[in-house]
Design a protein around this nucleic acid. Structure first.
Lengths: 165, 165
DNA sequence: CTCGGTGCAAAGCTTTTGCATCCGC
DNA sequence: GCGGATGCAAAAGCTTTGCACCGAG
């Protein structure tokens, strides 16, 4: 007897959405595509292509970077995954189905990524779209700052000016 | 007799700021650094490293990409230039002294970049910083959408669904 | 004169592409 | 079986780095 967890239910929904998308676009339902989707939804937080690829290699999936890139594009297009470019040259991704719309706050010292919600962003989006005659499809808001946590130890000793002893 | 334009005055201010920054950091005031600064402030809109480099080459400056990258980093650090990562892997820059804080709206079809201001973003920034205990230093808000202009011809024929005849 | 800055080219890293093979349909 | 998808590796594109030389202080 098997117990179906809510998490499993959620992944089933996601699989259905991806399947429907592939069928609508007349793309093939390859095992690689679903393996990548499953790996992504078993993860938490943000990840980059390389770490996803390595994870799958470690689990002995036979998968290539090219397929990871290709599949991520598909998942972004059907809104199951979101792609971010947090200032560096390395794209970051995160699963997005069933998660509330949110934006990001990044610590400039330790690069930790926090999330927050603010409904006003949606208003801004609508207003600016109206004003400039754009159909806004999505947005990216990233705040950069220094966290005040003591365990964020990457901070340079700027405040005291004691870097030179 | 020479007429000093407001634009020239502005660039003089910018040069002063950069000079002060270099002195404070005990960096050398090389002609290359000021030539790059001047080239940037003679430009409008956004630019990438390569186009800045090419412009300077065309004007027969002897300058290298390495120096352009190096100098841009300095200019970003003293807030005379802003660096953007509008989704691609290609960093975009723009001069920022004396320009009002603004955010960006990008057409997903023709990649044109528009600017807009909204004071609410500042409020969001303050509130989130307070809430999550961060000293917010800066932010990046980018809206992505389709412009409704007829001369934006990169649009795919999505709306009509006639792509398959 | 010193040593930081520069130009040039090579290397590094992420992402894309080409091609033979594989397998979903 | 056909043709799209894959794996692999090579190539492409942006950025950084190493090194010899130059020139600002």
């Amino acid at each position: 007897m098997q117990i179906t967890s809510p998490v499993q239910n959620k992944f089933d929904e996601v699989k259905k959405i991806f399947t429907a998308y592939l069928e609508r676009k007349e793309l093939r339902k390859t095992p690689e595509r679903f393996a990548i989707l499953e790996e992504i939804y078993s993860r938490h937080d943000h990840f980059d292509v390389e770490s996803l690829y390595i994870s799958m290699k470690n689990k002995n999936y036979r998968v290539s970077r090219a397929t990871v890139y290709n599949t991520l594009d598909l998942l972004v297009e059907c809104d199951l995954v979101t792609k971010h470019q947090f200032g560096g040259n390395l794209a970051q991704y995160e699963k997005s189905y069933g998660y509330r719309q949110h934006d990001h706050l990044i610590c400039v010292d330790c690069h930790q990524v926090l999330e927050f919600c603010d409904p006003r962003i949606h208003n801004i989006q609508s207003m600016v779209g109206e004003l400039l005659q754009f159909n806004i499809q999505h947005h990216s808001l990233v705040l950069y700052g220094a966290c005040k946590r003591t365990d964020c130890s990457n901070k340079k000793d700027k405040a005291t000016g004691n870097t030179h002893g």
